[in-house]
């Protein structure tokens, strides 16, 4: 059973979605929100598995809402017809439903979401956590396990994954607090490295280390943190 939150500013749209979901045995509706700030609060307190999120909402779009979350839940976007929003979807293959929502499409979307939620709930696969990144017009839903490197860039952090490196509006310190220290290593003031992507380690003259990641990204480890790295790597 997936616990779902409905976010839409129109009461009728929520009522319609509620009615459609009543016929779906895999979903339980745990709450409703009518705007972005309300939704943020509900997500924090209810911790739903799945959020139905309207793209166009007063006080910030659905994308802005997700980008404000530390960890994104499973999301199915709902939208009437938003040309620009649909462009963002194409890039990232997020799941979305067009209003009026057809029951068949809803069933298919729920089946996909169900698979992902089930995977995340198995205790061994803690790596299925996701973050949502919105950089300008483009959006990404990224599994943490796909991220190679976080690089500090002023108040922002540049995130390296797949072929992209968008900016995230968070400081490196904020990110470090909630990343798994067993997998993400704070190499220096400027970098957090995903240990799974380290290919080569070379000692430097100053007693530090040079880490070579896939794609030839090189990261320097300060002397102070080198010992920490060695203890982690020997595990």
């Amino acid at each position: 059973m997936m616990r779902a939150l409905l976010v839409d500013d129109e009461r009728l749209a929520r009522a319609e979605l509620r009615r459609l979901l009543a016929a779906q045995p895999t979903v339980e509706i745990v709450g409703e929100a009518a705007n972005a700030s309300d939704a943020l609060q509900q997500i924090a307190t209810l911790k739903p598995d799945l959020v139905f999120l309207d793209v166009q909402m007063p006080g910030g779009s659905g994308f802005d809402l997700l980008a404000a979350l530390d960890q994104a839940p499973e999301v199915i976007f709902t939208t009437a017809f938003d040309r620009y929003a649909l462009q963002a979807f194409e890039v990232n293959a997020l799941d979305y439903l067009q209003k009026p929502i057809q029951a068949q499409r809803l069933t298919a979307a729920l089946a996909r979401a169900g698979l992902r939620v089930a995977r995340e709930k198995t205790p061994t696969a803690s790596g299925a956590q996701k973050i949502f990144i919105k950089d300008g017009e483009r959006c990404w839903f990224v599994n943490l396990s796909n991220i190679r490197l976080f690089e500090s860039d002023g108040n922002y952090t540049r995130v390296y994954f797949d072929g992209y490196k968008p900016l995230l509006l968070r400081s490196l310190n904020q990110l470090e607090e909630r990343l798994d220290p067993q997998r993400f290593f704070r190499a220096s003031r400027r970098h957090i490295v995903n240990l799974g992507f380290v290919q080569q380690v070379t000692p430097t003259d100053g007693g530090g280390l040079d880490l070579l990641l896939e794609d030839q990204l090189a990261v320097e480890v300060s002397r102070r943190r080198a010992a920490q790295f060695k203890s982690l790597a020997s595990l």
Binding site: L12, A15, E16, A80
Partner: peptide, 18 residues
């Protein structure tokens, strides 16, 4: 305006039951 019309259709569908 497609955004308006699809939203309206969605409202109609909700109202049919309400």
């Amino acid at each position: 305006n497609p955004h308006f019309y699809f939203n309206s259709l969605n409202s109609v569908r909700a109202l049919i039951y309400e």
